[in-house]
């Protein structure tokens, strides 16, 4: 279990003189759930953007399964096996729910224009597989996203369901690592508790490795194997939740008061 799946080496990025992130250095092992926490503006989402190829780091390296991800386009990163969700839910709102998870299998499939035009056996088989995998992924969230919902546009979904669909969409890309950007933001306690359970299941049943940005300390405590704390672009602590939450630097810089109360 201790294979270094994702290795972040001295990662820094500067935007016009501002150090958005400096010298971030940690690794994620296969099958781990790692939470990245920190106050707003700590550089967490920038970190995700760098992994997924949307922002190029100024220095440092991101190594995934022994190969550097630097210089890859976002779609290539996804093809290597890293999928993500977005902080401000960004679904394909006018595509149906099923299409949303079907389209994200793009990089795992290969039928082109000719296959579609001549309806080759390969095309039909692949189309069938895409659909089945899509429905399977949606089924992970119980009955909320399947059945009559499959052919409804994503824009009719409620907020919580949109977040769920985003996770389903990331799952559908058949990744090894899923980056979750504030998965429970805006959910009520009942919903976030349920989703916390599902995040655990993502690892235990589906075998995904998970890196998660989260503000909800309850969720972080419940599922994380390790926690990395950022502040102003710098790593101020990392370790298990208990270690981190009792770290004086964290308490001072981030929580401002004992972590137990904050949750």
């Amino acid at each position: 279990m201790s294979e270094r799946l994702l290795d972040i080496q001295n990662l820094s990025v500067t935007f016009g003189g501002l150090n958005a992130l400096s010298d971030l250095d940690f690794h994620v092992d296969a099958g781990e759930i790692v939470s990245v926490i920190g106050p707003n503006g700590a550089g967490k989402t920038t970190f995700f953007n760098m992994i997924s190829g949307m922002v190029t780091p100024t220095s440092g390296d991101i190594v995934f399964k022994g190969e550097s991800l630097l210089g890859l386009d976002p779609n290539q990163v996804t093809a290597r096996g890293i999928a993500r969700t977005f902080q401000n839910v960004r679904l394909f709102a006018n595509m149906t729910i099923l299409e949303n998870v079907m389209v994200s299998q793009h990089c795992r499939t290969k039928q082109g224009i000719m296959g579609a035009l001549f309806q080759t056996g390969g095309f039909k088989r692949e189309e069938q597989e895409i659909r089945e995998h899509g429905e399977k992924v949606l089924g992970f969230f119980g009955s909320r996203l399947v059945g009559f919902r499959l052919n409804q546009p994503a824009s009719v979904l409620s907020y919580a369901n949109r977040r769920r669909l985003e996770i389903a969409r990331a799952m559908a890309t058949k990744p090894e690592v899923i980056l979750l950007d504030e998965p429970v933001a805006g959910m009520n306690p009942k919903e976030s508790e349920e989703l916390t359970g599902l995040i655990g299941k993502l690892r235990d049943e589906w075998g995904f490795t998970i890196v998660m940005i989260e503000h909800d300390m309850g969720v972080v405590r419940d599922v994380s194997d390790r926690v990395v704390v950022l502040d102003h672009g710098e790593t101020i602590a990392q370790g298990s939740y208990d270690e981190v939450s009792s770290d004086p630097a964290v308490i001072e810089a981030y929580l401002g008061r004992p972590a137990e109360e904050a949750s």
Binding site: D73, N75, S104, H106, T173
Partner: peptide, 19 residues
């Protein structure tokens, strides 16, 4: 489907593995 995804939101489509 890839075309529609690009029409909806190009950068998300890119992040979902679409060239």
């Amino acid at each position: 489907r890839a075309w529609m995804a690009v029409r909806e939101d190009e950068s998300v489509a890119e992040a979902m593995g679409i060239n």
